[in-house]
């Protein structure tokens, strides 16, 4: 048996690191300084644009526009890499399946079209939301008249996640130490797999009860500090979204994007390419 070493995944420390990364990696980039409502508007503009055409030239131009936005938003290489790989694999699988049913090159081109549309959508969401920290998104949702519970949930998740993961890690560790380990690993390690799956599921029994206990305090405290009151009285909402400012920069970005999208369509109309 090989020697044990330290693992750094699914520890509380790991989760805290991930959170700090989402919180801090958002500093910088084009969209980080913008009004979150404008960012959401920008995203909608980019998300709708590709669905109004079947012109491949327009789609290609929109794709390039999305890529430029991603670069301006300073999306990290890891996230971007995952996106590209995901897109590529989806295309390959679809093409393989289509060939199986007697398709030809036109099928692949057809698939290219839908993949390009989904690709533009993904690029837009990457650019917009990687640079939007959860707190700002929460305020934007409130401003856009989402229910307060949704806006609250976004920031509450931020707060609760390390606690829940720590709790879960302790419970699983308890099982790991106290439950007898499987006799052997079995074929392809199936015994070990079953052992871990069972532990993970069983861990939810104490987690349900412990979380229920702590949620009771949380909701009492929410009540005492006016959470329900704020859902009736509009003044709290006004203060919270009062910090949001739709400035000239936001207008400029939206205008430039709208212009760029129009250009994409113009380019498409000038040199149209259609499937088949």
């Amino acid at each position: 048996m090989s020697l044990r070493t330290q693992h750094d995944v699914l520890s509380v420390e790991w989760i805290k690191l991930e959170l700090i990364r989402t919180a801090y990696s958002t500093r910088g980039g084009l969209f980080a300084a913008m009004d979150p409502r404008a960012v959401i508007g920008w995203y909608l503009l980019m998300a709708v644009a590709p669905w109004l055409t079947h012109n491949l030239t327009t789609l290609a131009a929109l794709f390039v526009l999305g890529a430029v936005a991603v670069a301006l938003a300073r999306v990290g290489p890891l996230v971007l890499g995952l996106f590209v790989i995901g897109l590529g694999f989806e295309l390959i699988y679809l093409a393989l399946a289509a060939t199986l049913f007697g398709g030809d090159l036109t099928t692949v081109v057809a698939l290219l079209e839908v993949t390009a549309k989904l690709g533009v959508l993904s690029l837009a969401s990457l650019a917009a939301f990687v640079s939007l920290d959860p707190e700002k998104l929460s305020d934007a949702l409130l401003a856009l008249r989402f229910p307060p519970a949704v806006a609250f949930a976004v920031s509450y998740g931020y707060r609760m996640m390390p606690i829940l993961v720590e709790e879960f890690a302790t419970v699983v560790e308890g099982y790991r130490l106290r439950q007898a380990p499987p006799a052997g690993r079995g074929l392809l390690g199936w015994r070990a797999l079953v052992h871990w799956v069972l532990i993970t599921i069983r861990a939810f029994y104490p987690i349900f009860l412990n979380t229920a206990k702590s949620v009771r305090t949380t909701v009492e405290a929410l009540e005492a500090r006016g959470f329900t009151f704020a859902t009736i009285d509009p003044r709290g909402r006004a203060i919270r979204i009062g910090s949001l400012r739709f400035g000239p920069r936001d207008a400029a970005v939206l205008a430039v994007t709208a212009l760029a999208v129009a250009c994409c369509y113009l380019v498409g109309a000038t040199w149209p390419v259609y499937r088949g």
Binding site: W51, A97, L100, F101, G102, K117
Partner: peptide, 23 residues
């Protein structure tokens, strides 16, 4: 629906509906 909206005349493309349905 995304494929139908996204691809022009999707049902006329050879093998496309079947492969998507299969997957």
């Amino acid at each position: 629906a995304k494929v139908w909206v996204g691809v022009e005349d999707a049902e006329y493309v050879q093998g496309l509906p079947q492969s998507i349905l299969l997957l």
